[in-house]
Deep mutational scan, measured.
Amino acid sequence: MAAGGDHGSPDSYRSPLASRYASPEMCFVFSDRYKFRTWRQLWLWLAEAEQTLGLPITDEQIQEMKSNLENIDFKMAAEEEKRLRHDVMAHVHTFGHCCPKAAGIIHLGATSCYVGDNTDLIILRNALDLLLPKLARVISRLADFAKERASLPTLGFTHFQPAQLTTVGKRCCLWIQDLCMDLQNLKRVRDDLRFRGVKGTTGTQASFLQLFEGDDHKVEQLDKMVTEKAGFKRAFIITGQTYTRKVDIEVLSVLASLGASVHKICTDIRLLANLKEMEEPFEKQQIGSSAMPYKRNPMRSERCCSLARHLMTLVMDPLQTASVQWFERTLDDSANRRICLAEAFLTADTILNTLQNISEGLVVYPKVIERRIRQELPFMATENIIMAMVKAGGSRQDCHEKIRVLSQQAASVVKQEGGDNDLIERIQVDAYFSPIHSQLDHLLDPSSFTGRASQQVQRFLEEEVYPLLKPYESVMKVKAELCL
């Protein structure tokens, strides 16, 4: 049975990233139509530049190519590739079939990587351009969430054990800070992308030097003109047959890092959902379990974690691919890159769409948070109580021993009897502590235990987050809708 299948058929496997999760716009960027249309555009740009620099290419040939950029006979191309065992030459023939007058000058002087690699770089750039505003929107939604809850005390956790208090907004800023680093890295790697350009079979530009009869300047002009037509500021000066596969490492490393950030955020949300302090959106008709109707599973956060793990592992592909590119190139890269580049971007696209949807509907339960604080705060307040007693004339050592005994009794009630923490009640009825009984409410005010959390939130948002989001103001209103 021949390899390949009808990918629109229910009898043929289709990647869930495309069929179930990723956005239509990201799927289109990695589609065959987008790819092969870009090949034709690159052939047109090459012909236009070659004509401008004096090669015998007519206006009629150029116009014929322009008129057929979208006229792609995919069936013919597939048949040609089956016959020739070469995808680029299959599309040269297919393009030439609908451009008979231009057929002889299509791909003039070029090698397969002229269309293959340059198209990949265009796709990487455009895919990054799709991700950047999506990530900015996630940051914006979380920034709104953090600002609104900047002063809401909550129990902090280290080692997932109760620690000092923080605020809900401050905790959210930990998430935002990681995503801001990801946004900066995505922008950097996007701006650092260079075009492969017009380089020939081993990167020496020998074929173009021959076409222009040894004119170095025209060869350099050709490279520059096509690079500018493709919208790049610069091209690699040095290439082998391909652009260095280190570029793929750079791009997928940034995406993998984004995956790590999203995994951490969504894990926190899942843990908070278990504590009943916070939940992701839950639709009115949504079913959490087929057997347990009360369940409210954090399905979206779980999906993000599941896909983020996949995204983090994909960076190993370009690392290994770059390491086995012998001399000017081997074909070890080809099949692998067809999979890992598309999957990385479709996965990143999915987790950003999902995280935006989550961040637009996060639900906080202040009463649950308050109750958990009441359970733990008495123990945390013991040092403040000791200091207040010393100020009232008591002995630190005597007070410490009193607190120690009462704390152990209260802990026994919590752990052995399943009761509430009654340390404060014990202190309130103990005559030894009568000098500070009137101060206990103040000493137990949760806001006095959150330090500068709310001020940190305000400063972080104003100095770091809002300036970073400013270039994306025009796209901030787009909502994230999930079908599944």
Rank of each mutant, 00 (worst) to 15 (best):
3 A>F: 11
3 A>L: 11
5 G>C: 11
9 S>A: 12
12 S>L: 11
12 S>F: 13
18 A>L: 15
21 Y>F: 15
27 C>E: 12
30 F>G: 01
31 S>I: 00
31 S>V: 04
32 D>Y: 10
34 Y>R: 06
36 F>K: 12
42 L>F: 02
43 W>E: 07
43 W>T: 00
44 L>C: 13
45 W>E: 10
51 Q>A: 09
55 L>D: 04
55 L>F: 03
55 L>E: 12
55 L>R: 12
57 I>R: 01
62 I>L: 14
65 M>C: 09
68 N>A: 10
68 N>V: 09
68 N>M: 11
73 D>T: 12
74 F>M: 15
75 K>Q: 11
75 K>G: 12
78 A>R: 13
79 E>M: 11
79 E>N: 11
81 E>V: 00
81 E>A: 00
83 R>T: 12
83 R>L: 12
84 L>S: 06
87 D>V: 01
90 A>S: 10
91 H>W: 06
92 V>N: 08
95 F>D: 00
97 H>F: 15
97 H>R: 11
100 P>H: 08
102 A>M: 06
107 H>I: 03
109 G>R: 00
113 C>R: 00
113 C>S: 13
113 C>G: 14
114 Y>N: 01
114 Y>K: 00
115 V>W: 00
119 T>Q: 06
127 A>G: 12
132 L>R: 15
133 P>K: 15
133 P>T: 14
133 P>M: 13
137 R>E: 08
138 V>G: 08
140 S>E: 15
140 S>L: 15
141 R>D: 06
143 A>W: 01
147 K>D: 11
149 R>E: 12
156 G>R: 01
157 F>P: 00
161 Q>V: 02
161 Q>F: 00
162 P>R: 03
164 Q>T: 06
166 T>Q: 11
166 T>E: 00
166 T>W: 01
169 G>K: 03
171 R>T: 01
175 W>T: 03
175 W>D: 03
175 W>G: 04
177 Q>T: 14
178 D>L: 00
178 D>M: 01
181 M>Q: 10
181 M>V: 09
182 D>E: 03
184 Q>I: 10
186 L>K: 04
189 V>N: 12
190 R>Q: 10
191 D>H: 09
193 L>G: 07
196 R>P: 01
204 T>A: 09
207 S>I: 08
208 F>N: 06
212 F>A: 07
212 F>N: 05
215 D>K: 15
216 D>W: 11
218 K>F: 09
218 K>E: 06
218 K>Q: 11
219 V>G: 05
222 L>D: 08
222 L>S: 01
225 M>V: 09
225 M>F: 10
226 V>P: 02
227 T>S: 13
229 K>M: 08
230 A>G: 06
231 G>W: 05
231 G>E: 08
234 R>N: 09
238 I>G: 07
243 Y>K: 05
244 T>M: 05
245 R>I: 00
248 D>R: 04
250 E>F: 08
251 V>F: 10
260 A>W: 04
262 V>K: 02
263 H>E: 03
264 K>Y: 04
266 C>R: 02
266 C>S: 10
267 T>S: 13
268 D>K: 01
272 L>H: 05
276 K>W: 04
279 E>C: 09
279 E>F: 06
283 E>C: 13
288 G>C: 06
291 A>G: 02
295 K>T: 01
296 R>E: 05
296 R>S: 08
297 N>H: 01
298 P>H: 01
299 M>V: 12
301 S>T: 12
304 C>K: 05
306 S>E: 00
311 L>T: 02
311 L>Y: 01
312 M>D: 02
313 T>W: 11
315 V>K: 04
316 M>G: 10
317 D>R: 02
317 D>S: 10
318 P>L: 03
319 L>F: 06
325 Q>W: 04
325 Q>I: 12
328 E>P: 03
330 T>D: 03
333 D>V: 02
335 A>T: 11
336 N>E: 03
337 R>P: 01
338 R>D: 00
345 F>L: 13
346 L>W: 08
348 A>F: 04
352 L>K: 05
355 L>S: 08
355 L>C: 12
356 Q>R: 06
357 N>F: 08
358 I>S: 12
362 L>M: 13
364 V>R: 04
365 Y>D: 02
367 K>T: 02
369 I>P: 04
369 I>V: 12
371 R>S: 04
373 I>A: 08
374 R>H: 07
377 L>S: 03
379 F>D: 03
379 F>N: 03
381 A>T: 07
382 T>S: 13
383 E>A: 01
384 N>G: 06
385 I>Q: 02
387 M>I: 06
387 M>F: 09
388 A>F: 03
389 M>I: 08
391 K>V: 08
391 K>L: 06
392 A>K: 15
393 G>L: 06
399 C>T: 15
403 I>Q: 05
405 V>D: 13
409 Q>H: 10
409 Q>L: 10
410 A>G: 07
412 S>L: 14
425 E>I: 07
426 R>C: 04
431 A>Q: 14
432 Y>A: 09
433 F>G: 04
434 S>N: 11
435 P>Y: 07
436 I>F: 04
437 H>C: 12
442 H>A: 14
444 L>C: 02
452 R>C: 14
459 R>D: 10
460 F>K: 00
466 Y>K: 15
466 Y>S: 13
475 V>C: 12
479 K>R: 14
479 K>H: 15
482 L>C: 09
